[in-house]
């Protein structure tokens, strides 16, 4: 999926997937922080948004 979205021109930073168990609170926090930081780097998304008037 990631590779496919990238192929469509979507920045890979925007789609991340990780396995986190219910007991891994810290891992969840770390990954979320990481995702937010990565997405901030690429800026607001303009692609695949419904410009439906």
């Amino acid at each position: 999926m990631k590779s496919f979205l990238q192929y469509l021109g979507i920045e890979p930073e925007r789609y991340q997937l990780a396995w986190i168990s219910g007991s891994e609170g810290q891992k969840f926090a770390d990954i979320m922080t990481h995702v937010v930081a990565e997405v901030k780097k690429v800026g607001p998304n303009r692609k695949l948004r419904e410009e439906h008037e």
Partner: peptide, 19 residues
């Protein structure tokens, strides 16, 4: 998937289909 015909919904349709 939305039924309206616009490039984004069209491409979303095809992403779902091909996946």
């Amino acid at each position: 998937v939305g039924r309206s015909t616009d490039p984004v919904n069209n491409i979303l349709y095809q992403i779902v289909r091909s996946m």
